[in-house]
Amino acid sequence: MSVAARPAAVPVPRETAIAPDRGRRARARRKTLGRALLYATAALLALFVLAPIYLITVTAFTPRDAVYDYPKRLIPESFSIETMRFFVTSTGVLGSLWNSVVVALISLVLSTLIGTPAGYALARYVFRGRDAFRLTILSTRAFPIVILSIPLAVSFIDWGIYDTVWSVALMHTALALPFTVLITGSIFVGVPRDLEEAAQTLGCSPAQAFVRVVLPLALPGLAAASIFTFVLSWNEVFAATILTLRERTLPALVLSSLAASPAPFRFAAAWFMLVPSLIIIFVIRRYLLGMWGRVSR
């Protein structure tokens, strides 16, 4: 109140306030700096992935002559769906896109159905030859599929499923299984056995305990494994080329024609191959993140 009291009163809180304030500021500054660094790294990583996607997208939708401009432009000046339309309507593209989706889904379902029990067994039971079994699973991937190509085709012709989505899906399932088994195996190891036993003491049968307790906990892992299978199948070229003739998957169709095609088509095809897998990953990602969060809490 008094004029004299003020100067006395003011420095005191100032003195005491300044020190922690400085500390806080420094901390805040450090925090901001750390955060900036984090964001910069994130931006850099994102750029690393997004830049090619951006370039592919832009080029896929520029008129053909502009694709050959030299030096290339970063920002498109004109827009055209001409190349894209030609590519999409050219023979077999839509059919093979459908085949690709079907093959990927069949592989996903089959490899999950077969791989999950195997992974569970590896995680829960100790049996003779368990390690050998693990190794054997992996070693199937060490086998170069190229030398198998003719025998595979011959067998599939004999069984009458050559040139169908099933032959490719079976092949992709076989290719994906080792990973599915190993991934799900490590996921099941992470689910505490106590929970399963607790469920059983409360009246669940082993099967019920698995379905009601273990499976929900393992879902994120299963989702990850299935994304993996999907992407593997989506990108796989060799088996698809050998095992199909008319019923080609998109990569098989595109591979045979793109190597020698002019650049605009390559961009159009690249974009066309990219987008469905991006969509799938975006869709599955929601569940994946949600579930990871729940389990790790």
Binding site: I150, I157, L255, S256
Partner: peptide
């Protein structure tokens, strides 16, 4: 088809 798969396929069909 590319050359490799082309000849693999023809040989496979002949063997089958």
């Amino acid at each position: 088809s590319e050359d490799g798969p082309f000849s693999d396929r023809v040989v496979a069909e002949a063997q089958a």
